[in-house]
Amino acid sequence: MTQSAMPQQRLYIEAVREGMEIPPLVKHPTQVALFRHSAVTWNAHRIHYDKEYAQAEGHTDVLVQGHLHGAYLVQMLMDWIGPFGVLKKFAWSNRRPGFAGDTLSCRGRVTRVYAEGGEHLADCEIWEENQHGEICAPGTATIALPSSGFRGT
């Protein structure tokens, strides 16, 4: 990152409606990405970097870390809400493994828009699916967004 852009809010609460879709995020985890993710999270579990071992456990290739599925969903949410939005709550569960070489698409939609504790909030259902349309990681999130009357700090 060499050049700073001015932070711009892309999403205000007024633009959010129940049922509205979150812009998808498509990820292509590679063996190198998974190895480096294991390294920085100090995760020695062999299924993430040793293909032979992963195959001995019945998998086709090295597995995407459970936390990386979550991180992809967080990335989608943070991209969507912008620098003036806040991720308040986030939950996900891993239902199906992802593998190096998969195309993993993060998606979601707004389920509820409301005000609470002086904040403008929205609940979302989110999920990550693979190239076969199978859901790997479903989840939920609550975000806080500025009102379009917001003038910044």
């Binding site: 700073s4 852009a5 990405a33 390294a39 920085v40 991180a71 992809y72 943070m78 620098p83 700090t153």
Partner: peptide, 22 residues
């Protein structure tokens, strides 16, 4: 960490940018 996720959000990388946010 953010790099290995492939998440280059400027909130994690650009101090100048992040300073102008809440």
């Amino acid at each position: 960490y953010a790099l290995t996720v492939g998440d280059l959000n400027p909130l994690y990388f650009d101090e100048e940018y992040a300073r102008q946010t809440p």
